[in-house]
Write a protein that binds this DNA or RNA. Structure first.
Lengths: 116, 116
DNA sequence: CTCTCATATGTTTATCTGTTCATATGATAC
DNA sequence: GTATCATATGAACAGATAAACATATGAGAG
């Protein structure tokens, strides 16, 4: 914020103005970063991937991924708070599944990028 | 990892086996998380969004987003290392642009999720 | 009621990450 | 050569965060 010298000398002001106009609001961009942050953890990605196939209970997920139950529970909470998974209680068990198709498509899109 | 009691009691073993079979390798999942981690920062998202429109030099990006030149430079390095942006030198200036279309589509997909 | 099991939650700790500050590089102008 | 400007880099500090541990809740079985 110290650099007071360069007053858009390098590019045309019009370009800069256009960019500013077309940028989503600050808050949207913040929310978007928050969303990606959720995907940015391998434990959470693994959980989501596991749920691609089937709804699973906490204990199964933990064993499947070889992660402690506590860790899974904490991460499931994060995923649930951010509406990426939903859950259904059945007796002592809680079954989790993906909240919607966007979750799949975002992950697949990311995977495409990795695989090229 | 302490929970030795629950041995896949809750769901059928077949489901669990199917899930295990269809899971990508550990390393792929890790890379995927790493990719999303890059998008999981509002400064970087802002930079990428700014580059949707046009190629821009470091100083312009900094002013545009009201972030210090140093911070932008650091983040551009992260983006470049991870092949999300590319750069072109021209005299004193370095112009950055998006590396490929995947970047756009991943971000747009995320934005769709936000906007519903 | 008590006991057990599945899950959740609070707290602490260790690690990671983004920003700032100071400084270095590299290019142009003089 | 020196001065200036754009960018990059290294180090340090502050805030975020994921995991581990201990503990709590809540449901079913007896």
């Amino acid at each position: 914020m110290e650099n007071e010298k360069c007053e858009y000398l390098c590019v045309h002001e019009d370009t800069v103005k256009k960019v500013i106009n077309d940028m989503p609001e600050e808050e949207k961009l913040y929310d978007l970063a928050e969303l990606f942050k959720i995907f940015g953890d391998s434990t959470r990605i693994k959980i989501l991937y596991a749920l691609f196939e089937a709804e699973l209970c906490v204990c199964d997920i933990a064993q499947l991924l070889n992660v402690s139950q506590t860790a899974v529970s904490h991460q499931l909470r994060v995923l649930k708070t951010n509406k990426l998974v939903k859950c259904r209680k059945e007796g002592k068990n809680v079954f989790y599944s993906l909240a919607d198709d966007h979750v799949c498509s975002i992950i697949n899109q990311g995977m495409d990028h990795i695989n090229e």
